[in-house]
Design a binder for these strands. Sequence first.
DNA 1: CACCATCACTTCACTAGTAAAATACTTGTG
DNA 2: CACAAGTATTTTACTAGTGAAGTGATGGTG
Lengths: 176, 176
Amino acid sequence: MRRTPDIISAARGQWKEIHPELDTSSMEIIGRVFRTAALLRQRLDTVLGDEGLNRAEFDLLSALRRSGEPVTPGRLNGLMVASGAATTKRVQQLAERGLLERVRDQHDRRSARVRITDHGAELIDRAFARNLEAERELLAGMNAKQREAVSGGLAELLRSLEGPPAPAPPAPSQPD
Amino acid sequence: MRRTPDIISAARGQWKEIHPELDTSSMEIIGRVFRTAALLRQRLDTVLGDEGLNRAEFDLLSALRRSGEPVTPGRLNGLMVASGAATTKRVQQLAERGLLERVRDQHDRRSARVRITDHGAELIDRAFARNLEAERELLAGMNAKQREAVSGGLAELLRSLEGPPAPAPPAPSQPD
DNA sequence: CACCATCACTTCACTAGTAAAATACTTGTG
DNA sequence: CACAAGTATTTTACTAGTGAAGTGATGGTG
């Protein structure tokens, strides 16, 4: 049944020879998540490059576009898993290109709002559709069952990662 | 059954309102892979930081350590999904810190070999064990079934991504 | 209402990563 | 064996991202 073992299985096997006492099972998930992300990014970046965007810009404009209303930079930090400094820089660059605009919040003037422009919306709509198409091609090797299993499992993992940076205690029990 | 919908479900829902005609199902996998990778990286980087390594250095030393024998920079590029320039830089820095050494290949002198030092092996053994422990904690929220499903699905995806950078033709038809 | 801890964001100085050019070696080919 | 083409790696010039310090605004508290 096994074809070529993937690079992660191979790595686990090598570690087993050196340190048989270590439990490397977590690599099966985390190692693969990292490598899959790296390869997917590599492939998809060529598509975004055609539209004149890098992935960070794409993610930022997507978040703005789909949110409908202006978003604060602080919220963008969280959506992008990036530092505030990175967000500031990206917003400035995209604003210079006329893809979004910054508005000061009238009620709390520490805060700002970032809103996508019509030009930005046009661009991201086109880029988003193209990106989706490329994504579908990249996933062609997975069948429906595998997709469901992976998305379900990752959703669960995401929920446990999103909240606190501290590792979850043994009994979380968060009722809905 | 559904608790809090994760950020990816939410994003899909928003896109559906704006562009109901788009098939955004690929986000369920790819969106989650990207976000999970970003969050995992954020969490695990603190552990590596304690050992004086960043993730790239950790991955490079790990590859060297587990491979047993010296590795060419070219091979490291592939293992790390990085440019040759990045590999050169990292190898230089780690060599300066005495964690690895570079040897010229005697048969083909265009090529080089990178070998981990005893000092490097000690460091990575410690860092690797600590990293594994942190990984296990982060995965605590997933049960065995979910883990198996995710690792199996991602392994399949990885295999289809590893080979050719070219997008698959319309009729793949790869019998299992 | 002056004070000060906190917040939201930006600026600064720096590190890491990249693409493209450069370097150094190897491998045919006539 | 001279030479063109190809390979493996490094160097160069540049962009993107970060942590820490800085700026300006808010909101208790006495």
